[in-house]
Measured scan of single mutants.
Amino acid sequence: RVIAMPSVRKYAREKGVDIRLVQGTGKNGRVLKEDIDAWLA
């Protein structure tokens, strides 16, 4: 299970990103909004 705040999950869904593919850089591997942006870049 991916650790991410609900707002980040929603952001990823809106961008069409599968959050399971994104490498989290936050505490304990948490996926941050910046990680979604970096994955899209």
Rank of each mutant, 00 (worst) to 15 (best):
Arg1Lys: 15
Arg1Gly: 14
Arg1Ile: 15
Arg1His: 15
Arg1Asn: 14
Arg1Met: 08
Val2Ser: 09
Val2Ile: 15
Val2Gly: 07
Val2Pro: 09
Ile3Thr: 08
Ile3Gly: 06
Ile3Met: 03
Ile3Trp: 02
Ala4Asn: 05
Ala4Met: 04
Ala4Glu: 05
Ala4Asp: 05
Ala4Val: 08
Ala4Trp: 02
Ala4Leu: 04
Met5Glu: 15
Met5Thr: 15
Met5Pro: 12
Met5Ile: 09
Met5Ala: 15
Met5Asn: 13
Met5Phe: 14
Met5Lys: 14
Pro6Tyr: 05
Pro6Cys: 08
Pro6His: 10
Ser7Gly: 13
Ser7Thr: 11
Ser7Tyr: 10
Val8Ala: 05
Val8Lys: 01
Val8Ile: 09
Arg9Gln: 10
Arg9Ser: 06
Arg9Asn: 05
Arg9Phe: 12
Arg9His: 12
Arg9Gly: 03
Lys10Met: 09
Lys10Phe: 07
Lys10Ser: 08
Tyr11Trp: 03
Tyr11Ser: 05
Tyr11Val: 07
Tyr11Phe: 04
Tyr11Gln: 05
Tyr11Asp: 05
Ala12Val: 01
Ala12Asp: 01
Ala12Gly: 03
Ala12Phe: 01
Ala12Gln: 01
Ala12Ile: 01
Ala12Asn: 00
Arg13Glu: 11
Arg13Ser: 12
Arg13Ala: 13
Glu14Arg: 12
Glu14Trp: 09
Lys15Arg: 12
Lys15Thr: 08
Gly16Val: 04
Gly16Trp: 05
Gly16Ile: 03
Gly16Lys: 10
Gly16His: 10
Val17Trp: 01
Val17Phe: 02
Val17Gly: 01
Val17His: 00
Val17Pro: 00
Val17Asp: 00
Asp18Gln: 07
Asp18Lys: 05
Asp18Tyr: 04
Asp18Met: 05
Ile19Tyr: 04
Ile19Val: 07
Ile19Thr: 03
Ile19Phe: 04
Ile19Met: 06
Arg20Trp: 09
Arg20Val: 08
Arg20Asn: 13
Arg20Pro: 02
Leu21Val: 15
Leu21Phe: 14
Leu21Asp: 10
Val22Asn: 00
Val22Gln: 01
Val22Pro: 03
Val22Glu: 00
Gln23Asn: 13
Gly24Ile: 02
Gly24His: 03
Gly24Val: 03
Gly24Glu: 02
Gly24Arg: 03
Thr25Val: 03
Thr25Lys: 06
Thr25Phe: 03
Thr25Met: 05
Thr25Trp: 03
Gly26Phe: 02
Gly26His: 03
Gly26Met: 03
Lys27Pro: 13
Lys27Ser: 11
Lys27Thr: 14
Lys27Leu: 14
Lys27His: 10
Lys27Asn: 13
Asn28Glu: 10
Asn28Ile: 05
Asn28Thr: 06
Asn28Met: 11
Asn28Tyr: 12
Gly29His: 09
Gly29Ile: 02
Gly29Ser: 07
Arg30Thr: 12
Arg30Gly: 08
Arg30Gln: 12
Val31Thr: 06
Val31His: 02
Leu32Ile: 12
Leu32Cys: 07
Leu32Met: 10
Leu32Val: 10
Leu32Lys: 08
Leu32Ser: 10
Lys33His: 12
Lys33Leu: 10
Lys33Ala: 07
Glu34Lys: 15
Glu34Leu: 11
Glu34Phe: 09
Glu34Arg: 11
Glu34Ser: 13
Glu34Ala: 12
Asp35Tyr: 00
Asp35Lys: 00
Asp35Trp: 00
Asp35His: 02
Ile36Lys: 00
Ile36Gly: 00
Ile36Tyr: 00
Ile36Ser: 00
Ile36Val: 12
Ile36Ala: 00
Asp37Ala: 04
Asp37Tyr: 04
Asp37His: 04
Asp37Asn: 08
Ala38Trp: 10
Ala38Val: 10
Ala38Gln: 14
Trp39Arg: 05
Trp39Phe: 14
Trp39Glu: 04
Leu40Val: 12
Leu40Met: 11
Ala41Tyr: 11
Ala41Val: 15
Ala41Leu: 13
Ala41Cys: 11
Ala41Ile: 14
Ala41Asp: 14
